[in-house]
Design a protein around this nucleic acid. Structure first.
Length: 298
DNA sequence: GAAACGTGGGA
DNA sequence: TTCCCAAGTTT
């Protein structure tokens, strides 16, 4: 469904709002781009996958200080990157980022690719991250669609409280809304994300501050709860994920030393679950077992 | 398409 | 206190 002219007119207010209210985030500073280039953007995007901005910032600084280029990181060990990832969560991202650094070094001469398909071919990079790098690092014109953008479009354009499940149509819709001008398109992408992150939030949206308020389909309808509940996140307490987290936290704390297997969270309430966690961490390449016990991959 | 995958902070 | 959910990707 092509966007209505009303939608286009409404969303055209985003850039001005963005220029006057955007947060001063590290990866938006010219000096950041001068110093770290597309690599800095790529690292920031990996960390921002499902981890809040405020938690990412200090880790990003430390990461780039240690590994300022893809080649630097490609020379690091798996244990080092998992250790440096610390408590950012979803530690497989650290493996993927490391692998991507190796791929960039080997296949692209150490230069983060600019082409979206080349970016998509790197490990840990999907539709969002590939286009975010192409747009925010290289200034190209592509639709960048994250959860914030999807929520803004769901509300302002479709009149729904929450976006439906992610789909190819999100990309198509955002692509059809993008300004023709390349620089304007990049800013439009950033503005939609920023609005979703700071005003059009998942809970307690601040419609009184929204530049789209008087044209928002959802607000006009009285902010209905459209019923399309987001699927509930599985319980963390008592989950395999929690067990994996506990094991990995222990290994990070002991590194570079191995932990004897009998000393790996021996008091965990469900020992079969503990063993499952150990096995799956090994299978994922996040841990390694040898005669000394369990450790981060050497 | 659904499920799996960490961690911590705010409401 | 409990629940929600955060710049997603992979299988």
């Amino acid at each position: 469904m092509p966007p209505s002219s009303a939608s286009l007119a409404l969303l055209s207010r985003l850039p001005e709002w963005y220029r006057s209210t955007a947060r001063d985030l590290p990866w938006r500073r010219p000096a950041f781009h001068d110093e770290f280039g597309a690599w800095g953007v790529l690292v920031s995007e990996f960390m921002l996958q499902q981890t809040p901005v405020t938690r990412v910032i200090p880790h990003l600084d430390a990461w780039l200080a240690r590994w300022p280029t893809p080649k630097d990181m490609s020379a690091a060990s798996t244990a080092e990157v998992v250790q440096q990832w610390a408590n950012l969560g979803y530690p497989r991202r650290a493996l993927w980022l490391h692998r991507a650094a190796v791929e960039i070094t080997d296949r692209h001469g150490g230069v983060v690719p600019r082409d979206v398909d080349a970016l998509l071919a790197l490990s840990g990079i999907g539709d969002y991250t590939a286009r975010a790098v192409a747009v925010f690092a290289y200034g190209d014109r592509h639709p960048v669609v994250d959860t914030n953008t999807r929520r803004v479009l769901a509300r302002a354009v479709e009149g729904r409280a929450q976006p439906g499940p992610p789909s190819r149509r999100d990309l198509d819709l955002m692509g059809s809304l993008l300004p023709d001008d390349v620089a304007a398109a990049a800013e439009f992408n950033a503005a939609a994300m920023e609005l979703g992150a700071t005003v059009c939030t998942a809970r307690s949206p601040r419609c009184e501050l929204c530049p789209l308020a008087d044209g928002c389909a959802w607000l006009a309808a009285g902010r209905p709860d459209t019923g399309d509940e987001r699927r509930r996140q599985a319980a963390y307490e008592g989950s395999d994920r929690q067990a994996r987290g506990a094991v990995l936290r222990l290994l990070r704390g002991s590194a570079p030393d191995a932990v004897p297997l009998v000393a790996v969270i021996p008091d965990w309430p469900d020992l079969r679950q503990r063993d499952r966690a150990i096995d799956s961490l090994i299978a994922d390449g996040l841990a390694e077992a040898d005669g000394e016990g369990l450790s981060l991959p050497r």
